[in-house]
Design a protein around this nucleic acid. Structure first.
Lengths: 221, 221
DNA sequence: CGTTTGTTTGAAATAACTCAACGGGAGTGG
DNA sequence: CCACTCCCGTTGAGTTATTTCAAACAAACG
C-alpha cells in the first residue's frame, strides 16, 4: 500500500494497471510527470455509476493542483502500466522560470486543465453521443500527436469501450454502436488497442466545437 | 463598447442585465470581485445550443485565471444588474498573504473553480435531470447561505427556467416538469425570482453527490 | 487451455426532446 | 394609468436518443 516508501530513493515510479496514483484526500507533496502509459481521474456513485473527469497521457503533469493544495481530491488510477517521474514541490519551486518542470510550467498545466474541463462541461451538457465521441477521439489524437505518438494515422488506444462510456457519459452499449457507425462511414477504426484515424477532417467536423463565433446575447430568440 | 475607459477612474463598475463582463479572448489585467448580482460564463454553438459553464454570485472572484493568463477565454454575461469591484493584478500581487484579495485568496478561488468543474462534469455525465437540478439548487442554496443571503428558507433566484436548462444541460420544457414534481413533493418552491427551500434534507438526498465512499477498483463487476 | 475481460447483437423500455399552443405577468410606451 | 408587448412559465401529444437486460462471441491473459 505505502509503495511510496520503497520508491523514495528513486525519482521514477511505476504503477501496474488498476493501481492508484492517488486516492481521494491523500496528501501530496509532489507532482507526477507521466512518462509512459495512461491514467484516469474519476468519481463514482455508490450504485456504480462512474465518470472519468481527466485523462492523463504521457507528458502530462498529474495534478498540478497538488502543488497549490498539497493533497489530491479525487482518485487517479492507472489504465495501463504507467511510468512517472516524481517531482517534489520543493524542486519545482527551485526551478528557474523557463526550465522544464518549473512553477510556471506546472501552473500553466493547471490552466490547461481548467480549460479542458470547460470544454467537457460543454460536451456533456450540449452534445450528442456521436459528437462527444468524435470530440474525444479528436482530442486524444491531437494530444498524442503533440507528443509524437501518432505514426501515419495510427496511435495506441488503451481505452476500453467501458472507459469511453465513462468519459463521454453514455452507456457502453451505445459507445459500441456509435463506434460501429463511425467505422462504417470510414472515419475511424478502433481495434485491438489501436486507433486508426482514416478521415481526421470529417471527424473534427463532427466533433470539434467552434469557440463562440460572434459573442451574441444569449438566447436571442 | 469600451466602457472600461469611463470606468477606469473608479474601482467599482456596474453592468446591466445582458451586458458583458468579459468577451472571448479579451485581455484582462484585473480580476473582478462581484459585490451584487449574478453573472454567467457560457459557451455556445452556431445552431444556438448554449451551455453555462460557471455561475458567479456575490462574493465570487470573477475569473481568478485572469491573474495567471492575462486574458479571458469565454464570454461572461450579467444575468441581473451587477456591481463589481475591479482589482488590478498589480494590486493583488501587492497584498500580503492573508489580506483580502491577496494572491493566495485568488488562487484559492481558482482551485475552487477547478473542483466545481469536476463536480459538474460528473453531474452532466452521470446524473439524471432531477438529480442535476436538485444538485444545482443545493449548490446555490449553500453558496448563498455562505454569504448570508438566505433568510429563513428563502433566497433570491434570478435564473429563468431557460437558464436552468443551460446549466444542467436539459431542455427548458423538461426543467419545468421536474420543478413541478419537486414542488409537488414539497421540496422547493420557485416562483417570481425567489426560491423557497421547504425540505433541504430531502433535496440534498436527491442531489448531493457523495464523494467516493471507498475507493475501489473501478468497474469491479 | 481454461478463464476472464471486452465486444457485438437484438428487443423492449424510458428519459428526455421537439413542436406547438396558451396564459400570466412584468415591464414599457403612449 | 392603461394597453400592449414580450418574456416566461405551463401543458399536451408524438418522436427520438439512449438505456437496460440478456445472451453470444472474440480476444487477451495467465
Amino acid at each position: 500500500m505505502t509503495q511510496d516508501m520503497t520508491r523514495a530513493p528513486s525519482q521514477v515510479c511505476t504503477y501496474r494497471r488498476h493501481e492508484f496514483l492517488a486516492r481521494a484526500d491523500e496528501r501530496k507533496d509532489y507532482v507526477l510527470r507521466i512518462e509512459e502509459g495512461w491514467a484516469a481521474q474519476y468519481r463514482l456513485l455508490p450504485d456504480g455509476r462512474r465518470q472519468i473527469i481527466t485523462l492523463f497521457l504521457p507528458g502530462d503533469y498529474c495534478e498540478p493542483q497538488w502543488l497549490l493544495q498539497g493533497r489530491a481530491t479525487l482518485p487517479i488510477v492507472a489504465l495501463t502500466r504507467v511510468r512517472a517521474r516524481m517531482l517534489p514541490h520543493s524542486r519545482i519551486q527551485a526551478r528557474a522560470p523557463h526550465e522544464e518542470d518549473s512553477m510556471i510550467r506546472v501552473l500553466d498545466a493547471m490552466l490547461a486543465l481548467l480549460r479542458n474541463r470547460e470544454k467537457w462541461i460543454f460536451n456533456l451538457g450540449r452534445m450528442t453521443a456521436t459528437e462527444r465521441l468524435c470530440n474525444l477521439l479528436c482530442e486524444l489524437h491531437s494530444r498524442l500527436a503533440a507528443r509524437n505518438r501518432v505514426v501515419q494515422d495510427r496511435c495506441a488506444m488503451p481505452l476500453t469501450q467501458y472507459d469511453f462510456a465513462d468519459i463521454v457519459g453514455i452507456s457502453p452499449v451505445h459507445v459500441n454502436r456509435v463506434l460501429q457507425t463511425l467505422r462504417g462511414e470510414g472515419l475511424v477504426d478502433l481495434k485491438g488497442r489501436w486507433m486508426q484515424v482514416r478521415d481526421l477532417v470529417a471527424l473534427k467536423r463532427l466533433g470539434e466545437v467552434p469557440l463562440d463565433p460572434e459573442p451574441r446575447v444569449p438566447r436571442a430568440a
